[in-house]
């Protein structure tokens, strides 16, 4: 599988009044054609910032502080410098955001919002763009597409708006779709429909997808590969099967332990105690060591991702059953 997206040692910081927040601290990732990568991790671990960096959306107070991102051989970020290639963002690489209620312009019709991206990237005229927009609405399962083109976002339910967002994201035959918690704001039945839609589109269009989520269940159902983020770094990556069967990093093990499963009573759920370190002055070595049951002295040294089994782990004792209950 040739890498379509390659992120190398990416660093992103936010200059705030309190100081410099190190949101991403050396993130490396790669993604192949047609692959679905799940990014999981606690709130604030840097999942969204990673997506924003790929989309060229890092803006003041944030800035890229180092590293590179390349897309299909073209540089998006080169040695810490933001590049501005045209015809990639919004066309080949697109994004769906978390809150469908606010991610559409409330004062533009759905049609106008779809047509603008189609006209920009496919160079179609007004009428052709409108036809294409209607087709896209139909493709994401919105019935009466023609009529709905003239409606405003407030005339759509949350789930329908997220479908519209997806329609905009697939309108110009993208190769990569980044979905940042696309279902968090929706209720459960709608969540399932949206995920099904994404899976179907991926199959039909041969899309690569980066799916950002808190929900390991979603990852298990939809993704090929997983990257686990903690405090601005990736601590473990591997195939979905490996990660769920043999999580190697204590943090990954903790995440899986704290995920509700149908075959176990709820009271055996155990959240990881403590909170992630602040990113104003992140610790030097493994950021998880303050919460890790098997932390040792050598965890104070920086930990790079190293091959372990079929995946990669940043840990002094990869594969050890950290929580000691075999779960």
């Amino acid at each position: 599988m040739s890498a379509l997206l390659k992120i190398e040692d990416l660093a992103v910081v936010f200059d705030t009044r309190a100081g410099t927040v190190e949101a991403l601290r050396g993130v490396s990732l790669s993604l192949g054609r047609g692959e679905t990568l799940g990014i999981v991790g606690e709130s604030g671990s840097g999942k969204s910032v990673t997506a924003q960096a790929v989309m060229g959306l890092i803006d003041v107070p944030g800035r890229i502080a180092g590293g590179s991102i390349s897309w299909d051989g073209q540089a998006l970020v080169q040695d810490g410098a933001q590049q501005h290639p045209s015809g990639i963002w919004g066309k080949e690489v697109t994004m769906v955001f978390q809150s469908p209620m606010t991610s559409l312009n409330p004062l533009m019709t759905i049609g106008a919002q779809l047509e603008e991206v189609i006209r920009k990237h496919l160079g179609l005229g007004r009428a052709a763009a409108r036809d294409h927009a209607a087709e896209m609405l139909a493709a994401v399962g919105i019935s009466g597409a023609r009529r709905r083109l003239d409606q405003y976002p407030h005339e759509f339910s949350g789930g329908m708006r997220q479908r519209v967002m997806i329609a905009m994201a697939i309108a110009c035959e993208p190769k990569l779709l980044i979905a940042d918690e696309p279902t968090t704001a929706l209720d459960v039945t709608i969540q399932a429909q949206i995920l099904e839609l994404l899976a179907g589109l991926q199959e039909r269009l041969g899309l690569s997808i980066i799916l950002i989520t808190h929900d390991l269940g979603i990852v298990a159902g939809l993704c090929h590969r997983v990257a686990v983020m903690y405090a601005g770094q990736i601590v473990e990556t591997g195939s979905v099967d490996d990660i769920f069967d043999r999580p190697a990093h204590p943090y990954t093990q903790g995440l899986i332990r704290s995920t509700p499963r149908l075959d176990e009573p709820e009271d055996r759920l155990t959240a990881i105690e403590g909170t992630p370190p602040g990113l104003l002055h992140p610790p030097e070595g493994c950021a998880f060591r303050t919460r890790c049951p098997i932390a040792r002295d050598d965890c104070r040294a920086p930990q790079a991702l190293r091959p372990f089994g079929a995946g990669f782990v940043a840990c002094t004792q990869p594969g050890v059953d950290a929580w000691g209950d075999g779960k």
Binding site: L57, I88, W89, K91, T94, F97, V117, K120, M168
Partner: peptide
């Protein structure tokens, strides 16, 4: 600072267009 502006940027819309078409209307 509203999310719909980020959507427009992610769609590849230029800043002048975002100001002229998206935010001005709002």
């Amino acid at each position: 600072n509203k999310p719909y502006v980020q959507t427009a940027r992610a769609k590849g819309m230029s800043l002048p267009r975002i100001l002229r078409v998206h935010t001005l209307r709002n």
